[in-house]
Amino acid sequence: MRLRYGMNPHQAATLGNAPFTVLAGAPSYINILDALTGWQLVREAAERFGVPAAASYKHVSPAGAALGRTAAEAYLRARDADPKSSYGDFVAVSRPVDLELAAVLKRVVSDGIIAPGYDDGVLEILAAKKRGTYLVLGMDPSYEPPADEVREVYGVRLTQERDAAPLPHDLPDDAVLGMIVARYTQSNTVVLVKDGMTIGVGAGQQSRVDCTRLAGEKAALWSAEPLTGVTMVSDGALPFADNVEVAHRYGVTHIVEPGGSIRSDEIAAACAALGITWSATGLRLFRH
């Protein structure tokens, strides 16, 4: 099918066979990237934790992601992580959309949603958004992607194994959720998690300490009181102890990272000095 446009309006784009159905609206290239990346995140989180998961995507990275007792609660918690960045987001939820979530979506500024189903009456509510242009995608929940993924850049074809590495089972839930979010966020990435929701995502920065600082600044907006009990996940090894010092200022008490860098001993020592638990997983989660 022909898409509305590619990365930019001056670029034509098409879509081949897809594991979803367009139920309302007309997708663009970036809509599809957000939808499929967001779906992978919420599917993995829901399978791991057995509760509804939601993500609020902007430019192929989550502004927020969370677990909840219902799909509506999960999405509200995901959107509340960074409401400014979630303005005009693409929504991904692991459960069918019910009237409760539809009522939430009706009143927020959003571009579209992907979900495994829609209850009676929901599609009519969503299809009316944005003067009838709101994008609604129905995902096939049984779809399994190929083992390899392919990308073409400047006429060069690249093939690699899909990142399906199992995540640790000996870490707290917030640490595992942070790793799932990091897996589907543009690198470099630092994710701050508390009580089953992201409270700060620092994505796409060339300097890792800038990711840490950005995530912390977003988290600091949460409360007038100092934060505590925050888990920080880094998709790559922390290169310098300045990341630990910045994280400590934002209430981080547990840092999870791959480790294995030439300064990992310094990172571990800095964490110990500040009373921060340090977990080296040996698993890098870059996404480019």
Rank of each mutant, 00 (worst) to 15 (best):
R4E: 12
Y5S: 05
H10S: 10
A13D: 03
A13W: 02
L15W: 10
N17E: 15
P19E: 01
P19H: 06
F20I: 02
T21F: 06
P27E: 08
I30T: 13
I32E: 02
L33N: 09
L41Y: 09
E44S: 06
R48Y: 10
F49T: 05
A55G: 14
A55D: 01
S56T: 13
S56K: 04
Y57L: 15
V60G: 06
P62G: 03
A63V: 07
A63T: 06
A65D: 06
A66W: 07
G68F: 11
T70V: 04
T70L: 09
T70A: 05
A71E: 02
A72C: 12
A72N: 13
A74V: 07
R77M: 03
P83V: 10
P83F: 04
S94N: 04
P96V: 02
V97I: 14
E100T: 09
A103W: 12
A103L: 01
K106D: 12
R107S: 14
V109F: 14
V109T: 13
A115P: 01
A115M: 07
D119R: 09
D119V: 05
D120Q: 12
D120A: 15
L123Y: 00
L126P: 06
V136A: 11
G138A: 05
G138S: 10
M139W: 10
S142G: 13
Y143G: 00
Y143K: 03
P146E: 06
E152H: 05
T159S: 15
D163E: 15
A164Y: 00
P166Y: 14
L167R: 01
L167E: 04
H169N: 13
H169C: 14
A175W: 03
L177P: 04
L177E: 03
G178R: 09
I180H: 07
V181S: 08
V181L: 10
V181D: 00
A182E: 07
T189P: 04
V190G: 03
M197I: 09
I199H: 01
S207E: 13
R208E: 10
C211D: 08
R213V: 00
A215G: 07
E217N: 12
K218Q: 14
K218N: 12
A219D: 08
A220I: 03
A220C: 02
L221H: 15
T228W: 05
T228G: 13
T231P: 01
T231H: 09
M232Q: 12
V233Q: 06
S234E: 04
D235P: 11
L238T: 04
F240T: 11
F240I: 07
E245L: 13
A247L: 11
H248F: 04
H248A: 15
R249K: 14
V252S: 08
H254I: 11
H254P: 02
I255Q: 06
V256G: 04
G259Q: 04
I262D: 06
I267P: 09
A269I: 00
A270V: 02
C271H: 10
C271L: 05
L274K: 15
L274E: 12
G275H: 09
A280W: 06
T281F: 01
L283D: 01
L285E: 08
H288E: 08
